[in-house]
Amino acid sequence: MLIESIAFVLIGLAVGVGAVVLLPGYFPAARSLTVSTALVAAVLGGLISGYALDGRLPGVSLAVSAVSSVLLVSVLARPGQVTRQGRHRHRHA
């Protein structure tokens, strides 16, 4: 169970940091809020699924951990507030 818990933490950190680094405009809230939401969601999702499955299918617990982390981080996203920078798609000559 310790190895799985470490894997849940790593999944949560990967999702949180990946969201902040890859899509910084979508997350106007503090970066720590995004990363900690992903971390807590991954750990809780993984532990609950591990207990529900009685520890028999660790791969499913890891998948549930990743999905729960992504879903809860997506709640924090604000795509309507994204500011486009750089070159635009259509240029007016």
Score class of each variant (00 low, 15 high):
Leu2Arg: 01
Ile3Pro: 00
Glu4Cys: 03
Glu4Met: 12
Ile6Phe: 01
Ile6Glu: 04
Ala7Met: 07
Ala7Ile: 05
Ala7Tyr: 01
Ala7Leu: 08
Phe8Val: 04
Val9Arg: 04
Val9Lys: 01
Leu10Thr: 12
Leu10Asp: 03
Leu10Arg: 07
Ile11Glu: 03
Gly12Leu: 07
Gly12Tyr: 08
Gly12Val: 12
Ala14Glu: 08
Val15Thr: 14
Val15Pro: 01
Val15Gly: 07
Val15Asn: 10
Gly16Asn: 13
Gly16Ser: 15
Val17Glu: 05
Ala19Thr: 09
Val21Ile: 14
Leu22Asp: 04
Leu22Gly: 05
Leu23Lys: 03
Pro24Lys: 06
Phe27Ala: 09
Phe27His: 10
Phe27Pro: 01
Phe27Ile: 11
Pro28Gly: 14
Pro28Asp: 11
Pro28Phe: 12
Ala30Thr: 14
Ala30Val: 07
Arg31Thr: 13
Thr34Ile: 15
Thr34His: 08
Thr34Lys: 04
Thr34Glu: 10
Val35Tyr: 07
Val35Pro: 01
Val35Ile: 15
Val35Cys: 09
Thr37Pro: 02
Thr37Asp: 05
Ala38Asp: 07
Leu39Asn: 10
Leu39Gly: 10
Val40Pro: 03
Val40Ser: 02
Ala41Val: 07
Ala41Ile: 08
Ala42Gln: 11
Ala42Arg: 10
Leu44Ile: 15
Leu44Ala: 15
Gly45Gln: 06
Gly45Tyr: 02
Gly46Trp: 06
Gly46His: 08
Gly46Val: 12
Leu47Pro: 02
Leu47Gly: 09
Ile48Gly: 00
Ile48Ala: 13
Ser49Met: 11
Gly50Lys: 00
Gly50Tyr: 11
Tyr51Phe: 13
Tyr51Asn: 05
Ala52Asp: 11
Ala52Met: 12
Arg56Asn: 01
Leu57Gly: 04
Val60Ile: 14
Leu62Gly: 00
Ala63Thr: 13
Val64Gln: 02
Val64Ala: 14
Ser65Ala: 15
Ser65Leu: 05
Ala66Phe: 09
Ala66Trp: 05
Ala66Tyr: 03
Val67Thr: 12
Ser68Ala: 14
Ser69Asn: 09
Leu71Lys: 04
Leu71His: 05
Leu71Val: 15
Leu71Trp: 13
Leu72Gln: 02
Val73Pro: 07
Val73Thr: 14
Ser74Trp: 06
Val75Leu: 15
Leu76Glu: 05
Ala77Arg: 09
Ala77Asn: 03
Ala77Ile: 02
Gly80Leu: 00
Gly80Asn: 00
Gly80Met: 04
Gly80Thr: 06
Gln81Asn: 05
Gln81Lys: 09
Gln81Gly: 06
Gln81Val: 02
Gln81Met: 06
Thr83Gly: 03
Arg84Cys: 06
Gly86Pro: 10
Arg87Gln: 14
His88Ser: 09
His88Trp: 01
Arg89Ile: 13
Arg89Leu: 15
Arg89Tyr: 12
Arg89His: 15
Arg89Ser: 11
Arg89Gly: 10
His90Cys: 04
Arg91Tyr: 07
His92Val: 08
His92Gln: 00
Ala93Phe: 12
Ala93Cys: 02
Ala93His: 10
